[in-house]
Nucleic acid binder design. Structure first.
Length: 217
DNA sequence: TATAGGATTTAC
DNA sequence: TAAATCCTATAG
């Protein structure tokens, strides 16, 4: 099998940096999966979130080291996949030094031409949608990202990157709920939430509190 | 053992 | 606006 047309996968030490550094650097990268049916599916990442460790109250590692979060406390560059709401598999990459328990959640990607899911899954604009599209589930928990069936490859970085608060973590308290740890390519049409353009170079995300306004209590 | 709630998506 | 659906964490 030839891999001509795509650069080699990132080495595992690429991920051994802080999550808030790795997360924006993954925008534009290509995530590739060999599905259970042997079909190769891939897409260009356009939205990520950083979960920076046990002190981050939105991070699963804040609950301590459990069987579910065990892989987060391990080596960078491995997959942390878990089930939310009893329905959706969410895909993360472990980052940072050993034991720091950080991860980057991949929230949206643009499907590569020809990439389609097993059923009718054809969209990549959401953390649950993209895993269904690429056939990612917990069978890949702990899998390294530098070899099949799961690989991440350098791609064309977006011209701009916008940071916003993370989605769905209001329970974590204001400090962590408001921290700008979500990174998006604002020029992509495949984001999990739409961005409203404010002006040249200025963006605000729907659902994101405007700092110039008084926060609702 | 029982119960509540979640890094979401979809349908009514 | 609520259901779908199951795993984890916490309480008893």
């Amino acid at each position: 099998m030839s891999d001509i047309g795509s650069p080699p996968a990132y080495p595992l030490d690429f991920y051994a940096r802080p999550a808030e550094v790795v997360a924006p650097s993954l925008l534009g990268a290509t995530l590739r999966v060999v599905g259970r049916d042997g079909v190769v599916r891939s897409g260009r990442i356009v939205e990520t979130e950083a979960y920076v460790g046990p002190h981050d109250l939105a991070c699963h590692a804040a609950k301590g080291r459990t069987r579910r979060t065990e892989v987060m406390f391990g080596r960078a560059g491995h997959a942390y996949v878990y089930l939310v709401y009893g329905l959706h598999e969410l895909f993360n990459v472990v980052t940072g030094a050993d034991g720091e328990a950080q991860a980057v959640l991949v929230r949206a990607l643009e499907p590569a031409p020809g990439t389609r899911g097993l059923g009718d899954a054809g969209r990549g604009d959401g953390p649950g949608r993209l895993t269904r599209l690429l056939d990612i589930d917990r069978r890949l928990l702990g899998a390294p990202l530098d070899r099949p069936p799961l690989t991440l490859h350098p791609g064309r970085p977006p011209p701009r990157v916008v940071a916003t608060p993370r989605v769905g973590v209001d329970y974590a308290g204001r400090e962590w709920a408001d921290a700008p740890l979500r990174f998006v390519d604002p020029d992509s049409a495949q984001l999990s939430l739409s961005l409203a353009r404010l002006g040249p170079g200025g963006y605000s995300s729907r659902g994101v509190r405007d700092p110039s306004r008084t926060p609702a209590t």
